[in-house]
Amino acid sequence: MSALNVNGRDHTVDTDPGTPILWVLRDTLGMTGTKFGCGAAQCGACTVHLDGEAIRSCVTPLSAAEGRKITTIEATTDGADTVGAAVHAAWLKHDVAQCGYCQSGQIMSATAFLKSLPRGKQPTAAEIDAAMDGNICRCGTYARIRAAVADAARALA
């Protein structure tokens, strides 16, 4: 039995502690907002926050979540999180998604990035690119991702 905390809720699961968090979320807890893209930390689709930091859940084992807090797209965009709400709103304003499959990961990376900035600091274009470079979008929504992250940063200032 392993214990984990997801979006503020404690769960006990009978899953091998070596199982990546991604599959505990998706297959054990039925939380499918977090996506599987590569399984090898190469695309960012599975990004969640572990104690506020963006991690690739496809390569992070359940055992690493012991005593820490996992936050997923479902909680980040439910309105309670100020930064997540700003990112979500900017994503809607710019109609970022196409197929949408990568977007949970994009939003989780963008949110962690904006949270990592000192209050009020506006990121440069290069900083936004660097922060988002680990997230592939095969649909090519990059121009709108750039605009949306910059917009969310302005809204939070």
């Binding site: 039925g30 907002g33 996506k35 479902e74 965009t77 809607l92 109609d95 970022v96 998604a97 949408g100």
Partner: peptide
């Protein structure tokens, strides 16, 4: 026009084929 699926796709609430979960389903 904004996409009809924009909201679901910006909140992890859009289901794709990979998210289909039927009772008893195996992988």
């Amino acid at each position: 026009n904004a996409r009809l699926d924009a909201r679901a796709k910006s909140s992890g609430r859009q289901d794709f084929g990979i998210d289909v979960r039927l009772p008893g389903q195996l992988t």
